[in-house]
Design a protein around this nucleic acid. Structure first.
Lengths: 250, 250
DNA sequence: TTGTACATCTCGGGT
DNA sequence: ACCCGAGGTGTACAA
């Protein structure tokens, strides 16, 4: 069997055969088709006839893509179970998820292409510039917050949530850091405030510092009104000098 | 020209030809390939060699899918600009986004399938069970909140945010509703609290009610501690009896 | 363009 | 299984 099987304008029988082959062989299935889509689960949706790309992965992920946007118009998450059946002469792909129960049905009005891809992939994404790396940075260089700052806990569970970084300042005050890898908004300030207020119930002096590359206008206002602070810190991008073959992209 | 062009195990020249054809013709391009992926922008990532599905849409959306998970491992949002070039005998797909500047590069080590799909789609998703429909419901049936409740504003901008529903109770107290279409969490409570406190600065009696199908344990505790309230409401799913041909899926 | 909040968010980590 | 929060979140909508 080869890595890829593809048939343009397949017969219904060929569609069924290839789909069954893909579903039973850990292969990734891609279909170009004119179709209708029905979904019922956490919400409910209908999509009238049109040309779409369908992707069914061996882990049960099911994507329905229109010709615009990054997001699938309909989908089913990993773990869902796919079947294909014929109803009144129309092929129907059906994907069922349990817990929560969700059903996705795609009526295949006309299939332009079926392709089966035995994709082998043992690599995982390596990403830098995350919030976790901001925390690392602050533990390595606490002076980025202020002189004398001592970070003590990381991902510390408190009364009403989980604090990014908990530490003490030069004067012994408890300090809560809320880190954001991108521009911080109102939500981030509310989050910080929730932590500060929870800690204030058990400690006398608690400071809250929002640590981010920037703030929205509204976040800045709310932060001031609440007596909270801001420190500008960029999420660090590690140099991965992996194999020395990678040039700078940007 | 037909709706679909596909070549299995294409030569480099054929890849280049089909890709150029797709990029200049509003067609959706799909490639099965062994590839490496490099990204630099808001963050930075590297992905070693493996088999993936690449999708490039006519609006510039660029997806790199591994054989698991619903999410693309790498991507570029709509509006990005794609080019294909050859570097040291290797074909490279390059997508550039401006604002923020982000570059995605895919090294095509081996191409198993190139397919070009002139997808025609004039349909839009019709979805029910959203938060917006919960708001509609409450304006139609305010008694779902409590007897005498009068909803007044929808999506009302206040000092620090935008309130879902603002109204008055039987006794003339200002009432803020925060709606969640699914189980409400700590975040939802913080959001509601932010609105209530903003309104309290200008009004004497303000009540805050979280309206959702259920609550997380933590949300319930915080809600109680803050003197806020909860009303159980399910997001309504409209019956779309469209064309009478649709059976219930679930 | 910026700000704000929803989403069938998805995903991972912790308890 | 539930809870919690990050995300290159994406997406729509309003100011």
């Amino acid at each position: 069997m080869s890595k890829v099987d593809a048939i343009v304008n397949p017969s219904q029988d060929n569609v069924k055969r290839l789909v069954d082959a893909a579903l039973s062989s850990e292969a990734l299935l891609t279909i170009f088709a004119r179709c209708r889509v029905h979904y019922d689960g956490r919400a409910k949706s209908e999509l009238g006839p049109g040309d779409r790309v369908l992707i069914i992965k061996p882990d049960g992920s099911f994507l329905v893509h229109q010709n615009r946007k990054r997001e699938p118009v309909n989908w089913q998450p990993p773990g869902s179970l796919v079947t294909i059946e014929e109803r009144n002469g129309v092929l129907i792909l059906r994907s069922v998820r349990r817990k929560p129960r969700e059903v996705l049905e795609v009526e295949l009005d006309e299939v332009y292409l079926v392709s089966v891809f035995k994709a082998e992939d043992y690599e995982e994404l390596s990403l830098t510039g995350s919030e976790a790396e901001m925390a690392d940075l602050i533990f390595r260089r606490p002076d980025l917050i202020e002189p004398g700052f001592k970070p003590l806990y990381r991902e510390k569970t408190i009364k009403h949530g989980i604090v990014d970084v908990l530490g003490r300042d030069r004067e012994g005050n408890l300090v809560v850091l809320e880190l954001k890898r991108r521009k911080a908004d109102l939500h981030a300030v509310s989050q910080l405030k929730r932590y500060v207020e929870a800690l204030k119930m058990e400690h006398p002096n608690v400071r809250g510092i929002l640590v981010a590359p920037s703030l929205t206008s509204g976040a800045r206002k709310l932060l001031r009104n609440e007596g909270l602070e801001f420190r500008r810190v960029e999420p660090p991008k590690k140099d991965r000098r992996d194999k020395g073959r990678q040039r700078t992209l940007l």
